[in-house]
Computed example of a mutant assay.
Amino acid sequence: MTTLDAPWLRTDRSRAVCAMLTDAGHQAWFVGGCVRNALIGAPVSDLDLTTDARPDRVMELAQAAGFKVVPTGIAHGTVTVIADGEPFEITTFRRDVDTDGRHATVAFADDLADDAARRDFTMNALYAAPDGTIADPLGGVPDAQAGRVRFVGDPQSRIREDYLRILRFFRFFAWYGDPALGIDADGLAACAMNADGLDGLSSERVTQEMLKLLSAPDPAPAVASMAASGVLVRVLTGAAQDVLTVLVHVEQDAGLKPDPLRRLAALGGSRDRLRLSKAQATRIDALTFPAASAGEMGYRLGATIAIDKLAILAASLGQLLDPVDVERARIGAAQTLPVTAADFMPELQGPALGKALQQAESRWILSGFTLSRAELVRTGG
């Protein structure tokens, strides 16, 4: 029997929340990501529990124990209990009654096995008791440890319950899969056969999954599998996935942190299927700025975006990022044009004034930002 030894199991908060349930005769199991990540040594951010207690009962017990309670998803069985400032999402065991490819109608269950059977991947159907004892009804422990992302049961059935699981399959492979093992063939085939189901998903859900996938340390193998299965074209028509493979290498060599928007810009293609925030769209538009000298891009775009642009350009040419260009971009970002319209007035007005300013700026950039105000004014721009 596998036992989990994780520091978050031993905190007073975790013990108190579990005791709230178990002292009342109910089951308490940590579930999903926190168990999976602790098992493989990955960071744990959220603590989720599942129980046979119904949501109203969970709320009653939590309030009696003095915890703050938020009915975050009570219709679906989820209550958030906040203990000493830390949130614990507690969801009643569930089983699917009906699904339409986007949403599921669920019923509460009394058995952990029913709850496990409705989950997407075996590595997510992992449960840990308050003492660390792991319940693994579907063989998720060896899958998680080996880096095998496998659907629970029949892959096509799981996908048709919620077509977003196609994108989750690739996202989980990007984060937790072992590229040396390759992606699960049955899962990949099921994704290919059901790729048209993605068309019915909201742009918000598709965007969220894609950005999470592209945030992985190296999403290139997953994205290549998406392209081969016909999934990538459903979300990014015209994307050039080969550039991503090189970009990841460029990032690693240059010490750049993984960035989903940089990678999305490198992939290119149509973003019609995505719904980005205004800030995200603005940044990607900046990354499509016409290629120029490193200094000019730093001056016009700022250091961060200019370096991202340089990394994408290098990847598209199959080259590494030149440290000299990075430094030039940083120098350019620190510059301020030393002349203003007032320097050319009143001799110049209207279109002539605008043209003089443009010419002055171009000469100044070409000089490597060395021409002074007096030199630019003396030459009339």
Rank of each mutant, 00 (worst) to 15 (best):
T3S: 12
E161R: 14
L21M: 02
H76K: 12
W175P: 01
M297F: 01
D56W: 12
I331F: 12
A360C: 10
V97L: 15
E375P: 00
V231M: 04
E296P: 02
G200D: 10
G32C: 06
T22L: 10
L353A: 06
R363E: 11
D308Y: 02
N37P: 00
T379C: 12
Q208Y: 07
R150W: 10
A228I: 03
P137N: 05
E204A: 11
K309H: 14
D131T: 08
L310W: 07
W364N: 00
S362P: 00
C34K: 05
L201T: 12
D23T: 07
M123W: 01
L321Y: 08
A185P: 14
A292N: 10
E209S: 10
L188R: 15
A42S: 13
G25M: 07
D253C: 08
D308E: 12
A291K: 12
Q145K: 14
A360L: 06
M59R: 15
K257N: 12
P87Y: 09
I307D: 02
G132L: 03
R118P: 04
C34Y: 06
A356W: 10
T3V: 14
L247K: 11
T282R: 15
G41F: 01
A281Q: 15
L9D: 13
V149C: 05
G101W: 06
R118G: 02
L274H: 08
L313M: 10
I74E: 15
S229G: 08
Q241A: 11
R57K: 15
G332Q: 10
D136K: 03
V326W: 08
G302P: 03
T207I: 02
T237Y: 09
E375D: 14
A292G: 09
G200C: 08
N194L: 15
A180G: 08
F108E: 04
R275N: 09
P43G: 02
M59A: 13
A315T: 00
A315S: 09
A83F: 03
E86W: 11
W8E: 12
D136Q: 02
D84E: 15
P55L: 02
A107S: 13
Q335H: 02
D12C: 05
F170Q: 10
M20Q: 10
L213M: 15
R13E: 15
G302D: 00
D5W: 03
V70F: 08
G41P: 04
L357P: 03
T78G: 11
L353H: 07
S270W: 09
G139A: 03
E347N: 10
G230S: 05
F173H: 12
Q349N: 13
I183P: 04
A311H: 01
A53V: 04
D272M: 06
A65T: 05
D100P: 12
L376Y: 02
I166E: 11
A227Q: 15
T2N: 09
F67D: 09
D52A: 04
L201N: 09
L4I: 01
F151M: 08
L181A: 13
A6Q: 09
D285V: 04
F151Q: 07
R275Q: 12
T3R: 14
P87D: 09
Q241T: 11
L213Y: 04
V106N: 13
L39P: 11
R271P: 01
K68S: 13
F88T: 08
H26R: 14
A117K: 10
P55Q: 05
V250A: 00
T122D: 06
E347F: 06
P219W: 07
